[in-house]
Amino acid sequence: MADDTPLLVTREGPVVRATMNRPARRNALSAAMGEAWDQLLAELAADRAARVLVIAGAGGHFCAGLDLTEVASDLPPAERLARAEARNRRTGARFAAISALPQVVVAAVEGACHAGGLGFCCAADIAFATASARFAAPEVRRGLVPAQILPWLARRTGRTAATRLVLEGTVIAAAEAARIGLVHQVLEDAAALEAQLAATIAAVLQGAPGALAETKGLLAALGPVSPEGYAEAGAAAFARTSSSEEAAEGIAAFKARRQPGWAG
């Protein structure tokens, strides 16, 4: 079953492919998938034979964000708050770890790329999408906040475009995602996406491994993704909102496929 292998990792020589593998949930990020990601990233950080990491999703979708079935909890409020803070802190650290890898990271987006999925897309060095891909930061519509994806969105698209995306919470098409810089190129279909991946991988492998890693380091040295203290503030904000009555209503409405009460 897919949930037995929530992150499918394959390797062909220097190219590693990590496929988020919960297609029945549009590859929503579960705790088990997060643990698998953290293990892979720790291994890749020390792997000088690996040159490229491709991030993709199974079943025609990239990643629909956090699995909201794991947000709701019958735990006491203090414990629920602590768990939410820890989960969001790990999420932010995961995106930072992806960006800091010595390998060149390429996101291959099909279908839904929502919420936390945007974090994976924007933490990658290069991002491609099929024309049918759809992007959204819908957290405020669930009574939540886009705490740990926001710095990565702002870095990729600029603050103005990120602001509109996170405050409106609407779904945008791949062409619009490319226009605002969320992805670098839109391909017609999955076959064209694979062809572009092959071309990009071939181009990257022409670069010297050490020089590529040093170049990524120089890009990072241009400035931090977020100011000092943001990660903790974001984790605390997400924990507060995820434990709120708004989140309870927003998640219930999402599951029932209805409008939340505040939307009239």
Rank of each mutant, 00 (worst) to 15 (best):
M1Q: 10
M1Y: 10
A2V: 10
D4W: 08
T10H: 05
E12K: 13
E12R: 12
V15H: 01
V16P: 08
R17V: 13
A18P: 06
T19V: 15
M20Q: 15
M20I: 06
P23A: 06
A24S: 14
R26E: 11
L29I: 13
S30R: 01
M33Y: 04
G34F: 02
A36M: 01
W37M: 13
Q39L: 14
D47E: 01
L53H: 02
G57A: 02
A58F: 00
C63W: 08
C63Y: 07
G65V: 00
G65M: 02
L66T: 09
V71M: 07
P76K: 11
P77Y: 07
A78D: 15
A78R: 13
E85L: 12
A86M: 03
R90A: 15
A93W: 02
R94M: 15
A96W: 00
S99K: 15
P102R: 03
V105S: 08
V105E: 06
V106G: 05
A115D: 13
G116Y: 07
G116F: 06
G117M: 03
G117K: 06
L118S: 03
G119H: 00
G119W: 01
G119S: 01
C121Q: 07
C122E: 02
A124I: 03
D125V: 03
A127H: 03
A129K: 06
A129N: 05
A131T: 08
S132Y: 03
R134C: 10
A137N: 01
V140W: 07
R142F: 15
G143C: 09
T157A: 12
R159I: 11
T160S: 10
A161T: 03
T163E: 15
L165N: 03
L167W: 10
E168Q: 12
A174L: 04
A174Q: 04
A178G: 04
I180Y: 03
G181H: 00
V183K: 03
H184Q: 15
V186S: 02
L187A: 08
E188A: 15
D189M: 11
A192Y: 09
Q206R: 13
K216D: 09
K216M: 09
K216C: 09
S226Y: 12
E232D: 15
A235D: 12
T241V: 10
S243K: 06
A253P: 02
K255P: 06
R257E: 14
